[in-house]
Design a protein around this nucleic acid. Structure first.
Length: 900
RNA sequence: GGGCGCAUAGCUCAGCUGGGAGAGCGCCUGCCUUACAAGCAGGAUGUCGGAGGUUCAAGUCCUUCUGCGCCCACCA
């Protein structure tokens, strides 16, 4: 049995295809197994897979594959998000290239284009997820606008409306005058801009020659002023409160009021209040019951409320004209340069206008409470405390949620208006007004905020509001893996919707992954053009390499920098693993497994040679550690431990150690048994490591697992499901750590062997002995145990240290270089290379080092605080070390004396 | 203004509940040793940002300062 010399990354396609055909990703709702569920954060149908997706989905796939192997009924449910405004903007841009506008198509025509877009690009990102190796249950793939999910959206709206948790109200919304839509706070970018602060004054009514001076950065809003406000504690203006100011442009008198909102130290300590066009002023207006005068049209021009002189003008022109007018009236004071931040629509860059609109809102107070409580009482956990703070901070300061968007792409709000102004809310199109029976109803033209539907994702995807078997089995989900950017957009909303409609948290664990940045630590973004396409990387290196790279070398919850050089260690490791497997398979000839238990774990190795017991012990520890790290979602750590084990312990030490046993000629029972034990241990330990690695690099491990299982000639039967065997690693058993395999004695022995080998190698390098020159190594052990150990492993030590042979002696030879290690003194008879002076120097250095170590330990042990308060085990460890060093020091000093 | 993160070897970063500073890359030396040169062996490299404090013991906990970066709110 042999496998190709190098791994072919192009195999990934075929492997994935076979997984799909075999249905390995499918979660069985009628299974007896404990469910484990992850809902994918549905990517927008506008998106191409980017590095953030690659990381996010790699993490999810690692967790789901891990749990699947552990024997859970693992469901990773995939899907896409219609992403209302994001998609509209992209499609509009595409159409603009062909000279087509949204309006020319009309609502129906435009939606047709969007569904076409969804067919093409919605599928694209799914294909990209598949290339990454994502083991999603594609039979359950959902889309936020498919029938089932749309039904859930309407159901939720109607229920909340009927409970009085949804209302329609006039509120200031962020309005984009270009897109003609309201946008959420989160879609507003704040930019520092150079601007002017205009100082004006209004005459005080009835007080001839008296004025009140104020500053504004937006003179055009003066047309909508309905008050002038000062701080109630500000004595300068105390006398004016209750009087009126006069706006000459509008010929309107407005009250001078007192409100804490005003900062007396800023500017003149006077603020003009425009409730219809400023969020703070809106609040002030509510407190003082001020009229709200909307002076703007939806396109940003002045409307009829601005007065005949200004109606139809742009914001900028009106500003100009008003300033001129005020100057003519002698009411202009000065202009000051300021920089202040202005809100821009993140999709088009146009300055956002706060505008009064009739919108649909969700009352948040009642809904937010349990969501906040869940975090406070520990039912909902974040992988980092700081993310939880973001979450709770937002919920604590929550405002009602505006859920209507003036778009066409999305779920249309099921509210119908009759000619008499009544509202009928209904899932099905109503025939007549519920209030007056009027039959000429028009549906609200708006659609829902995209987050309104994705908030339902954890249960709408499982069939809610129907009581489906899926919902019963797979809700709640186990962990949510997402980016920190949508903690409140999405995470918080899923939590309160889950609590509200399922009566249960949608998940207990939230894992926020880091951001993938470019090599300079900048965010990867379209505008910077510094994004790296994961698909290109997959084409060049394979998905396994990309995946391993993404989760190695840094903690996945920290931000990480992507650069191509980081791919190489991952690629090199997989090459190493490939070759190690190739080596093992090349040396399994003649192996008989008949004598061994038919189990997939190395056990009953009691009578095996020490190195076999050692590597089995190390694998047992590794399995326990990796499992623990995976449960704790420290997947970078888990990956690192597997890599280290395979490369360092398995390849660099164990494989080299057993070569003499594999290569041993002869067919006598002892030789054959020794070889067989080595073959058995090699293959089982490697198999275990490959299975531990599978969640990280699914493709290569699948090929290796199948090939190795075949070569071993013993099926690795999954003890939980005897119908499935080594046909796929996906259904192979996750290695379990058996306590009886952990063998501290064997571990200590191999540590000594390693120390001895390193000692010999160091001397060889120092003396520039070429590898081709084999040296006869002689060893004087310090105690009977060491004698037994070095006797048993002499062939292995010889192999590892390039010796022609290793013999145990009892008197020091002449003209040999001596190396003192734990448990032995080693002699290298390099007569011609022995230089007494150099040896003295080397040994003296060694002596000094040991003396320093002993002094350090003595110092520590002399400290009463330490001996009284430190744990006993730690103190004992120090004492043991001291004893070992003392023995070694004696030997070194003996060698020094012998040099004379 | 409020909140948060980062600062550890030349570079990129690990170091969980405090117990003798680590990895990869790069660098130096020697090796194409029949699994792997995408490799093997050996080696050099750090006042763990500064200053205080708690402790028998601090990269790890507390305070503070400095330098980068992020998020939220917002300046009329």
């Amino acid at each position: 049995m042999d496998i190709p010399k190098t791994y072919d990354k192009n195999r990934e396609k075929d492997i994935y295809k076979r997984w799909i055909e075999k249905g390995y990703f499918h979660a069985d709702v009628s299974s007896e197994k404990t469910p484990y569920t992850i809902m994918i954060p549905p990517p927008n149908i506008t998106a191409k897979l980017h590095m953030g997706h690659a990381l996010n989905n790699t993490i999810q796939d690692i967790l789901i594959r891990f749990k699947r192997m552990q024997g859970f009924e693992a469901l990773w449910l995939p899907g896409t998000d219609h992403a209302a405004i994001a998609t509209e903007v992209v499609v509009m841009k595409e159409l603009a290239k062909q000279g087509i506008t949204k309006d020319s198509l009309g609502r129906e025509g435009f939606l047709e284009k969007l569904w076409e877009w969804n067919d093409i690009y919605g599928g694209e990102i799914i294909n990209q997820l598949k290339k990454l190796g994502s083991s999603c249950d594609w039979d359950r793939q959902r889309f936020t606008m498919d029938d089932g999910l749309s039904n859930a959206v309407l159901e939720v709206f109607v229920r909340l409306y009927n409970e009085g948790l949804i209302y329609r109200g006039e509120r200031l919304v962020n309005w984009c005058v270009k897109c003609g839509t309201s946008i959420s706070d989160a879609e507003v970018d704040h930019e520092e801009r150079q601007s002017h602060l205009f100082h004006f004054k209004y005459p005080v009514v009835g007080e001839d020659g008296m004025f009140i001076a104020f500053a504004t950065s937006r003179p055009e809003t003066m047309l909508g002023d309905t008050a002038i406000a000062v701080n109630p504690k500000d004595e300068r203006y105390a006398a004016l409160v209750g009087k009126k100011a006069y706006i000459p442009m509008c010929d309107r008198e407005i009250p001078i009021i007192a409100d804490d909102y005003v900062d007396p130290k800023f500017g003149t300590g006077v603020v003009k209040i425009t409730p219809a066009h400023d969020p703070n002023d809106f609040e002030v207006g509510l407190r003082h019951d001020l009229p709200r005068i909307n002076i703007l049209n939806d396109d940003g021009t002045i409307n009829e409320n601005g007065g005949a002189d200004y109606e139809g003008m742009t914001r900028e022109d009106a500003r100009e004209k008003i300033t001129t007018k005020m100057t003519e009236l002698g009411l202009f004071i000065k202009t000051v340069e300021i920089t202040h931040s202005v809100g821009e629509h993140d999709r088009c860059g146009i300055i956002v206008e706060p505008l009064m609109k009739l919108q649909w809102f969700v009352k948040m107070e009642e809904l937010a409470k349990p969501a906040l409580e869940a975090y406070k009482n520990g039912a909902l956990k974040f992988n980092r405390e700081r993310f939880g703070k973001i979450y709770s901070n937002w919920l604590e300061n929550i405002r009602d949620w505006c859920i209507s968007r003036q778009l066409w792409w999305g779920h249309r709000i099921p509210a119908y208006y009759c000619a008499n102004g009544h509202i009928t809310v209904s899932k099905d199109v109503p025939k007549k007004c519920a209030t007056c029976g009027d039959t000429s109803l028009t549906q609200d033209p708006d659609v829902f905020d995209t987050w309104f539907s994705s908030a339902l994702w954890p249960f709408s995807t499982l069939g809610w509001p129907e009581k489906t078997a899926d919902l019963e089995k797979f809700y709640p989900t186990d962990v949510l893996v997402t980016d920190r950017g949508i903690i409140f957009h999405w995470v918080a909303r899923m939590v309160f919707m889950g609590e509200k409609f399922m009566g249960e948290l949608p998940f207990k664990d939230v894992f926020i992954n880091g951001t993938v940045q470019d090599e300079h630590g900048r965010k990867m973004s379209k505008s910077l053009g510094n994004g790296i396409d994961p698909l290109e990387i997959i084409d060049e290196f394979g998905a396994d390499v990309l995946r391993l790279m993404l989760v190695s070398g840094n903690a996945v919850d920290n931000d990480t920098r992507f650069f191509r050089e980081r791919l190489e260690p991952a690629r090199n490791f997989l090459n190493k693993l490939w070759n190690a497997t190739r080596f093992v398979m090349m040396n399994l000839e003649g192996m008989s497994v008949a004598d061994y238990a038919s189990t997939d774990e190395p056990s009953a190795l009691i009578n095996f040679p020490v190195e076999d017991r050692w590597i089995a012990s190390r694998l047992a520890r590794l399995s326990a550690e990796v499992t623990e790290k995976m449960e704790a979602h420290e997947i970078g750590m888990a990956a690192q431990k597997i890599v280290d084990f395979v490369w360092d312990e398995f390849c660099d030490w164990y494989v080299e150690m057993v070569k003499p046993r594999l290569y041993a000629k002869g067919d006598d029972p002892a030789t054959r048994e020794s070889r067989n034990d080595a073959q058995y241990t090699l293959s089982l330990v490697l198999s275990g490591a490959i299975r531990l690695l599978h969640p990280f690099t699914p493709f290569i491990t699948e090929d290796l697992h199948i090939a190795l299982s075949d070569a071993m000639g013993m099926p690795l039967i999954d003890s939980r499901d005897t119908t499935i065997n080594n046909a796929t690693i996906m259904r192979a058993m996750w290695p379990i750590s058996h306590p009886n395999e952990i063998d501290p004695v064997a571990e200590k022995c191999i540590d000594r062997i390693k120390e001895a080998v390193r000692g010999i190698r160091a001397v060889r390098t120092e003396k520039q002995v070429p590898p081709s020159q084999k040296i006869a190594v002689q060893i004087i052990p310090t105690d009977p145990e060491s004698t037994a150990l070095f006797t048993e492993t002499s062939a292995a030590v010889a192999m590892l240290s390039g010796a022609s042979g290793v013999t145990i002696i009892d008197t020091a030879p002449q003209n040999a270089i001596s190396v003192v290690v734990s448990g032995a003194t080693i002699y290298l008879p390099l007569d011609s290379l022995v230089d007494a002076e150099k040896e003295r120097a080397r040994l003296t250095k060694e002596q000094k080092k040991l003396q320093q170590e002993i002094a350090r330990i003595d110092n520590k042990l002399a400290n009463e605080g330490f001996t009284q308060k430190a744990p006993e085990a730690l103190i004992q460890a120090e004492r043991d070390k001291r004893e070992n060093y003392t023995t070694m020091l004696t030997k070194v000093e003996g060698e020094l004396a012998g040099l004379c």
